[in-house]
């Protein structure tokens, strides 16, 4: 394989020792970056370079590196998961950038996402929203019903599946000018609201999850649509409208 010309990149990376300290952008130069490497591979190379000079490596979240775990985050050049559409940071390739470009790398910013260190934020607020109502109760006493025994309209099943592809990465929160978790929350509500199994707890689910999101400090939805554009899984705004409908009917009829 012919050797490709490496890229020279200037990085402005957010460095912050811990949640209490004040962070700042720090500038790094990294040369000979393969255009085919992923953004995280480039970050790995940067950390090698920093460690070689006895520095403290940049801490960032990652796990599966194939776009399904929702671990990686990073606000890259003013957008969550960078400039490419429908990909997470781990699937973002350096060829999306220009040789000699300056790239800003910041943590996802929200009151509900406190910085732990450098680019790592605590996203457990999303877990707590899920715990508040994002589940169904199934009898597992030994004679569990087959879920496929209930006929479900194909279109609805597809929509529920689309909503369930949300990986909970928090890009919607990071992109939203109000740090709202509406897209995440509405996907988690919709995946059940569309299915018969989800009807039993439907009312309490939407009320509890919305309440939890507010307690966590996520903002209101301004319908800017930024979340839908930036979502690596293409979760639709239609889900937010469904959540609004679910919430309206639940509020009007709850005791």
């Amino acid at each position: 394989m012919a050797a490709e010309k490496g890229m020279n990149i200037t990085l402005k990376v957010w460095r912050q020792k811990n949640g209490q300290s004040k962070g700042a952008l720090e500038t790094y130069q990294i040369n000979d970056v393969s255009p085919d490497s992923s953004f995280l591979e480039m970050m790995d190379a940067l950390n090698d370079q920093i460690i070689m000079k006895d520095g403290s490596p940049v801490v960032f979240d990652h796990d599966c590196r194939e776009g399904i775990c929702g671990s990686c985050s990073m606000y890259i050049n003013g957008q969550p998961h960078g400039p490419a559409r429908l990909v997470t940071t781990c699937q973002l390739h350096m060829r999306e950038f220009k040789d000699g470009e300056t790239i800003y790398v910041e943590p996802f910013r929200a009151k509900a996402f406190p910085v732990i260190k450098d680019l790592v934020v605590d996203r457990s607020a999303l877990d707590r929203i899920q715990h508040a109502g994002g589940y169904i109760s199934v009898n597992t006493s030994g004679n569990t019903q087959d879920a496929n025994a209930i006929p479900i309209e194909k279109e609805k099943a597809d929509k529920a599946f689309d909503a369930a592809t949300c990986i909970g990465c928090g890009a919607c929160v990071a992109a939203c000018k109000n740090a709202s978790a509406s897209l995440f929350m509405s996907a988690k509500i919709s995946q059940y609201a569309l299915l018969p199994q989800g009807q039993v707890e439907a009312k309490n689910r939407v009320l509890a999850m919305v309440k939890q999101a507010e307690e966590e400090g996520f903002g209101p939805c301004s319908n800017t649509g930024a979340c839908e554009i930036e979502c690596p899984k293409g979760i639709s705004l239609e889900n937010i409208a469904r959540m609004n409908r679910e919430y309206l009917s639940a509020s009007l009829t709850s005791k």
Partner: peptide
């Protein structure tokens, strides 16, 4: 909901 804003943001992209 966002007490600390981004140093560099491109909201016009979305």
């Amino acid at each position: 909901a966002r007490p600390i804003s981004y140093a560099y943001s491109r909201p016009e992209k979305n």
